[in-house]
Design a protein around this nucleic acid. Structure first.
Length: 794
RNA sequence: GGACGCGUAGCUCAGUUGGUUAGAGCGCUCGCUUCACACGCGAGAGGUCCACGGUUCGAGUCCGUGCGUGUCCACCA
C-alpha cells in the first residue's frame, strides 16, 4: 500500500480523480447495459450570466441521487444540457457587447449570441466537471442546437395542427423595454409609490368622482363600472358618462368585480390599464381604443400626449386636469405592479397577434397529471396545483425577439392564413427560406413569421430531447415517463408546469414519475441569490479553488429537501474540512492495520463487539437508504455521520485498538476479527460517503481498498444491501458504551488522562448480555485501564 | 389578501405513525501531548421546544386561534 500523506490535499486529489474517471469512462451511459433504467431530467441552466452557489446547492443534491441510483445497480441516464437561447441570453449578450438587439442586423446579433453563449457553456461545463458531476457529457444537449430546433418546431407544428396551439389577435402582456410579448409566468411584482388621482367625470350636470392610478389612459376609457349593489350609483346605471378633457361619452355599467369600498366605488375601464380591463372588455363586448404603442409611447392621435412615454403622459394629463379644476385630489399610495422579471419594466397590455398554447381548457388533465406524479417533498405539489388552478391566460409562446427558435410559419399575403413548414424541412427559419406552397385562397405570396419561440416552449421538451438521445443507445421502449425530474421550487410554475403540459399533448402521459424539488440558497433573510442580481460575492469557481469540490458538496447536503438554506462560508469551511480530515485520518488508521489482511479469509470467530459495529453499520445503511429513497440526501448524510464519527471512530476503534496493535496480548485470531470488522465498516462507510464526497473516497479506495475489492472504482461498487440488524447486538453495544461513558466521565471529573489507570469499572445492564460482556472484558479493560470489572447485571 | 413552510440550546439546524431524562455541529467552560487524527479526544454548562386554548392516561410531535418570520401566488381601478 502506498503511504498516506500526513494531510489530505483535496485540490490536487480532486483533479487527478476527475482525470481517472474520465479516462476510464466510469460514468458513461453504456449502450449494452441490461440493468433497469433510471433516467434523470435535469435542468439546463439558462445562459444568462454566471452560476452561483444556489445552482451548486440544488444541482449537487440531485447529483448525489444519480450516484446513489448508479450504485444501487440502475442504468443511470444522467444527461446535462444548457438553455442557451431566448430573452435571458439576449440580455446577457446585450450587456456584454453594449449592443441593443434591435439596433444591429439580425444575423450579426445572432452570431454574437452564439459566440457568447458558447463561451459561457464552456465555463459552466468546466465548473460542473470540477464539482465532480457524474453525468455523461456525451448526452449533453443545448436548447438552440439544430436537433433541438427540429424537435421544438415539430412540437409546435403538431400542436398547431391539432388545434392546441393557436394564433390570436388579443391583448397580450407586453414589455415595452424588451418590446416583446411575455407570458404570465414571466411576471414579477414590485411595489411602487404612486398616486391615486380622483378625477371629476360627469353624467349630464351631475358630477361623478372616479379614482385612478393611470390618468394617462383617460383617452382609452371605454366605460365606467360600479358594483351592482352600490346604492350610491344604482339610479345612474345605464346613463352616459362624460370623460373629462376629451369630452366623449361612455356608458355606466355594473360588474361584481368592482369593490364598493375602493376609491370612490366607480372604476374607469380603459384599454388596457390592467388585466381586469381585459376581462371586462371581453366579457362586456366593449370596443378597443388604442392609447399605447409597442415601444411604450402614447399613440399618435391621442390629444395632448401623443408621442410621450407613459410617465410623461401621466404627468401631463395630471397637470391639465389640475389646471382645469378637474383633479379633485391625489392620494399617495404604494401599490404592487407587475413587472417583467427579466428587466424590471412595468408590464403593459397591448393587443397583438401571438401564438398561444391552450392550457386553460386542460386544467383538469393538468391537475390529474399533478396527482399522478410523486412530489418530493410532497407539499411542493400544492404550488403546482395553485398555479394551474389560478391560471388566467393561455400560454403565449411567441416572442418578438431575435435569438431563439424561429416559429416555422408563413402568412398568406392575401388572406393572412398561416402556412406551416413541412416536418421534413425542419429546422427552418422562415426569414431565410420561402414558403413554396399555395394558400387555400390561391395566393402564392407569403410573409415569414418574424417571431421566435419562448425559451420555455423549448426547454419544456427536455424529456423528448432525452428520449431522442437515449434512442441512440438503443433505449427507447419504456423511456417515458422518465424516472425523475429535479429542479428548484421557483420554477414549478414554469419549467415543471410547461413540461407537464407538453408531455400530456405529445405523449398523453406524465413526463416523469418523481420530482425532486430542491431549495434555494438565501444570501440573507429575504434576498435570494440569483444570476441576474449577481450578489454572490464568491463565485463557485473561487469557492472550489479555496475549499475543494468535496467540501462544497458535503455542505450542500446539509438541508432537508426543498428547504431554503443560508450560505455561511465559515460554517461550510469548518464543518467540511473537519469532516474530510477525520475521514482521512481514520481511513489511514484502518488501512495501516490491513497490511496482512485477506478479505477471502473470514475469521472463525468474531468478538461480540466486532459483530456489534458491523450490525450498527448495517442499521445505518438501511436508515440512510430509506432517506435517499425519498431524495433526502441531507438526512441520510446525518445518519452516516453519526455512525462514522461516534460509533466507529470514537467507540469501536478505541475499544478494539489494542487488539490490533498487540496480538501478543490478545491473540492473533482476535486481531483478525478486528481487521475484518474495520475493513467491513470502513468500506461500507466509504460507499455511503461516495455520493457526497466522491473524490476523497475514491482516492482512499484506490490507495488502500481497491486491491481487496477488485472493482476499478469505488463508484462502480454496489450500494450495500445488508440484512436487518440484530437488535440484541445493538442493545448489547449500548450497554457497553454506557459503561465506557461512565469511566470517561469519572476520569474527566478528576482531570485524569484517558489512559490513567483506575481500580475498577462497573458495567450495568441486562443479564442476558452477560456472556457477550464477558467476552468483551479484555477489550474493555484495554480501553479503560481498569484493574477490575464489576458486573451489575439484572 | 390566499397558499405553503418555518418558529426547538448564544448560532445553524435534526427530532416521519404522540410514549422513559428533548438531540447534533459550531460557540462557550474545564480537562487530556492519547502510539489515525490538537483540523483531535473526554467531560460539562446551556432549553418555560413562540404564545394561549383544545384532544389524550400522556403533546416539541395532533387540532384551533394569535403573534413573529420566509417563500410562492394574487392584489395595478
Amino acid at each position: 500500500m502506498e503511504p498516506f500523506e500526513k494531510r489530505y490535499d483535496g485540490l490536487t486529489v480532486e483533479e487527478s480523480m476527475q482525470r481517472f474517471w474520465e479516462e476510464n469512462h466510469i460514468y458513461d451511459f453504456a449502450a449494452d447495459d441490461t440493468k433497469p433504467l433510471y433516467s434523470i431530467d435535469t435542468p439546463p441552466p439558462t445562459i444568462s450570466g454566471s452560476l452561483h452557489i444556489g445552482h451548486i446547492f440544488s444541482y449537487t443534491q440531485a447529483e448525489m441521487i444519480a450516484r446513489y441510483r448508479r450504485m444501487q445497480g440502475y442504468h443511470v441516464f444522467y444527461p446535462f444540457g444548457f438553455d442557451d437561447n431566448g430573452l435571458p441570453s439576449e440580455r446577457l449578450v446585450e450587456k456584454e457587447t453594449g449592443l441593443m438587439a434591435r439596433d444591429v442586423p439580425r444575423e450579426e446579433f445572432r452570431q454574437k449570441c452564439v459566440e457568447i453563449t458558447q463561451k459561457y457553456e464552456a465555463e459552466f461545463k468546466a465548473l460542473w466537471q470540477r464539482m465532480g458531476f457524474s453525468c455523461d457529457w456525451n448526452l449533453q444537449y443545448s436548447t438552440v442546437s439544430e436537433n433541438t430546433q427540429r424537435l421544438s418546431q415539430t412540437s409546435f407544428i403538431e400542436l398547431a395542427q391539432a388545434g392546441h396551439a393557436y394564433l390570436q389577435e388579443s391583448p397580450v402582456l407586453w414589455c415595452t423595454e424588451c418590446q416583446t410579448s411575455i407570458a404570465q409566468a414571466e411576471l414579477d411584482s414590485k411595489d411602487v409609490d404612486s398616486y391615486f388621482h380622483h378625477i371629476h367625470f360627469h353624467i349630464g350636470d351631475q358630477p361623478l368622482e372616479i379614482a385612478t392610478t393611470r390618468p394617462e389612459m383617460l383617452y382609452g376609457v371605454v366605460c365606467v363600472f360600479v358594483n351592482p349593489d352600490d346604492a350610491r350609483y344604482r339610479h345612474l346605471v345605464g346613463q352616459m358618462v362624460t370623460v373629462p378633457l376629451y369630452g366623449f361619452e361612455v356608458p355606466l355599467l355594473t360588474d361584481d368585480k368592482v369593490a364598493i369600498d375602493k376609491g370612490t366605488g366607480a372604476v374607469m375601464c380603459a384599454t388596457f390599464g390592467d388585466s381586469t380591463d381585459v376581462e371586462w372588455v371581453a366579457g362586456h363586448g366593449l370596443p378597443y381604443k388604442k392609447v399605447l404603442l409597442a415601444d411604450g409611447a402614447i399613440a399618435p392621435g391621442v390629444p395632448f400626449v401623443a408621442g410621450m412615454k407613459v410617465r410623461a403622459a401621466r404627468k401631463e394629463i395630471v397637470r391639465l386636469l389640475e389646471e382645469r379644476g378637474l383633479l379633485l385630489k391625489s392620494e399617495k399610495l404604494t401599490h404592487t405592479v407587475s413587472v417583467h422579471e427579466r428587466c424590471g419594466t412595468e408590464v403593459e397590455i397591448i393587443p397583438s397577434r401571438q401564438w398561444y398554447i391552450d392550457v386553460l381548457s386542460r386544467k383538469d388533465e393538468l391537475l390529474a397529471a399533478g396527482d399522478k406524479i410523486q412530489w418530493h417533498p410532497p407539499q411542493m405539489k400544492t404550488r403546482y396545483v395553485n398555479w394551474v388552478t389560478n391560471l388566467k391566460w393561455d400560454w403565449c409562446i411567441s416572442r418578438q425577439r431575435y435569438f431563439g427558435i424561429p416559429i416555422p410559419v408563413w402568412y398568406c399575403k392575401a388572406c393572412g392564413k398561416p402556412a406551416y413548414a413541412a416536418l421534413e424541412q425542419l429546422p427552418v427559419n422562415p426569414l431565410e427560406t420561402d414558403y413554396d406552397g399555395i394558400c387555400a385562397c390561391g395566393c402564392h405570396d407569403f410573409l415569414p413569421d418574424k417571431a421566435v419561440l419562448d425559451t420555455w416552449a423549448t426547454s419544456s421538451i427536455t424529456p423528448l430531447l432525452n428520449r431522442d438521445k437515449a434512442k441512440e443507445y438503443g433505449v427507447d421502449e419504456g423511456f417515458m415517463p422518465m424516472s425523475m425530474r429535479t429542479q428548484a421550487h421557483e420554477i414549478i410554475r414554469t419549467w415543471a408546469f410547461y413540461t407537464i403540459a407538453k408531455s400530456l399533448y405529445h405523449t398523453n402521459e406524465i413526463p416523469w414519475f418523481d420530482t425532486m424539488i430542491c431549495g434555494f440558497v438565501l444570501a440573507k433573510p429575504g434576498e435570494k441569490i440569483s444570476k441576474s442580481k449577481s450578489n454572490s460575492k464568491l463565485s463557485p469557481g473561487e469557492l472550489i479553488q479555496s475549499y475543494s469540490a468535496d467540501a462544497i458538496r458535503y455542505w450542500a447536503a446539509n438541508a432537508r429537501l426543498g428547504t431554503d438554506t443560508y450560505f455561511d462560508i465559515q460554517d461550510m469551511q469548518d464543518t467540511s474540512k473537519r469532516f474530510m480530515t477525520k475521514l482521512w485520518n481514520s481511513s489511514k488508521f484502518v488501512l495501516s492495520h490491513l497490511h496482512d489482511f485477506d478479505p477471502a479469509h473470514r475469521p472463525e470467530r468474531l468478538l461480540p463487539i466486532d459483530r456489534w459495529i458491523m450490525e450498527r453499520t448495517n442499521a445505518a445503511v438501511l436508515e440512510a437508504a430509506k432517506w435517499l429513497d425519498e431524495y433526502e440526501v441531507g438526512l441520510a448524510r446525518k445518519v452516516v455521520d453519526d455512525l462514522f464519527w461516534k460509533d466507529l471512530c470514537d467507540n469501536y476503534i478505541e475499544i478494539a485498538k489494542e487488539r490490533l496493535y498487540q496480538p501478543d496480548l490478545h491473540g492473533e485470531e482476535p486481531r483478525r476479527a478486528a481487521q475484518h470488522a474495520i475493513y467491513y465498516c470502513l468500506l461500507t462507510v466509504l460507499k455511503m460517503y461516495a455520493i457526497y464526497i466522491p473524490h476523497e473516497v475514491e482516492y482512499i479506495y484506490q490507495k488502500g481498498l481497491r486491491g481487496f475489492v477488485g472493482a476499478l472504482s469505488i463508484h462502480l461498487t454496489e450500494w450495500p444491501k445488508p440484512p436487518a440488524p440484530n437488535a440484541e447486538l445493538l442493545a448489547f453495544g449500548e450497554t457497553l458504551i454506557a459503561a465506557l461513558t461512565e469511566v470517561r466521565r469519572y476520569k474527566a471529573e478528576r482531570n485524569l488522562s484517558m489512559r490513567a489507570d483506575i481500580d475498577r469499572a462497573v458495567i450495568a445492564g441486562d443479564a442476558k448480555y452477560r456472556d457477550w460482556l464477558l467476552e468483551t472484558e479484555k477489550d474493555f479493560v484495554a480501553c479503560t485501564h481498569a484493574g477490575e470489572v464489576i458486573y451489575d447485571l439484572k
